[in-house]
Simulated assay, not measured.
Amino acid sequence: MARGIGLDRPFFDDKNRAFWILQSVGWSGYFVLRTVSGFANDKVWMFAVHVILMTATGYSLTLLMGTLFRRVISMRPLLTTVLSLLAVVCAASAFSIIETWSVATFVNQDWRPRTVEYLGGFILNFTLLAAWSALYYGINYYLLLEEQIDQRERLESQASTAQLAMLRYQLNPHFLFNTLNSISTLVLLKQTERANAMLARLSSFLRYTLANEPTAKVTLAQEVETLKLYLEIEKMRFEDRLRPHFRIEAETIGARLPSLLLQPLIENAIKYAVTPSENGADIWITAEHVGDKVVIEVADNGSGEGTAFAATPSTGVGLANIRDRLAQAYGPDHGFATRKNERGGFSVIVDIPYESGDKDS
């Protein structure tokens, strides 16, 4: 039933429909109030004819005013005010002339209006039509403001989404070039099985990065599987020099986070801990559920020079990129810290709100 009469959607969703409803209800109320007031003061039945004529006059005049107001509302404020005031004065003058004539014709045929009666009628009708105009402009300016707020929110949301996508696509692809160079070397050495295995893993990793929306959130379990795939590619380059360790609490595997958030941190550890060392390095990825937060740490036992990972014009990506993605995804409700750890290496600690769900957001 509500759907049939249009009550299942916001009242001002259809401004034209809302105008006609308010116009009809308002002037119906005017008719009822004036009729009841007249009969309460012992007016004759012809007074009802007079009120019907006044209601029809007011209804018609305000329709004309509304047509004018729709045209002038977008003009400069001063021009809108002047034209609207002139329209109210003209309408009130016409209203008072018709009203005094109607009273003399239907209510009291012996009454002859004088200037003061016209003036009194003008003042009352001017007040009535000015109130109608104020309500008209008040509603329309409110709707314009609401529309501008909605538009601003949409633009802010689009800008936020675009920035998230940009940050995701900024991820440093130099590992891709390194991997392709390694594959090329393996082909030249005729180690086709290793080259094919590396190509398959690279293909799976790239398929994942392309299949997921840049602004999507994935479960920590999915993120860990992607990290393992990435580490398998790198391990074929570094072999035993790269020693990853995962310590993921069972309670955290369903937690959601921006996709590929941790990959640059692993890449950082490989670049500054594994690559410079002849013996390589260990990398630990840990996740804990602490209260309503998920605390994730990526640590290594290298030289502790991972702070060089901060964004620079040459790389275009780094710790600043991670901070920006976290800020876009969680606002102030997250934590991000770096430190030199007890193993002599570098640690990055991220804490984010615990979110869970079955679908990517």
Rank of each mutant, 00 (worst) to 15 (best):
K340E: 15
P313D: 14
S203I: 01
V82R: 12
F126A: 14
D358V: 15
L63G: 03
P173Y: 06
L167N: 05
E193V: 08
T100E: 14
A56Q: 00
T81N: 07
A162I: 05
G121K: 13
T315V: 10
Y169V: 07
T35A: 11
Y136V: 02
V298M: 03
R112W: 08
R339T: 06
L145I: 12
N178R: 12
A299T: 06
Y272F: 11
L7V: 00
I283T: 01
D13I: 08
I285F: 02
E146V: 10
K293H: 10
A92Q: 02
P10C: 06
N341H: 03
L180Y: 01
V317Y: 14
P244T: 06
A91V: 04
I5M: 12
T161E: 12
L261G: 09
D351A: 03
E239Y: 02
R207I: 11
A310L: 06
S74K: 08
A91L: 04
R9H: 08
F205K: 00
F12Y: 11
L164N: 02
E342Q: 14
F177R: 07
L231C: 01
V317W: 04
H174M: 04
L319A: 00
A134T: 15
R17V: 11
M236Q: 11
P113K: 06
M46D: 08
N341R: 04
A40M: 05
L144Q: 14
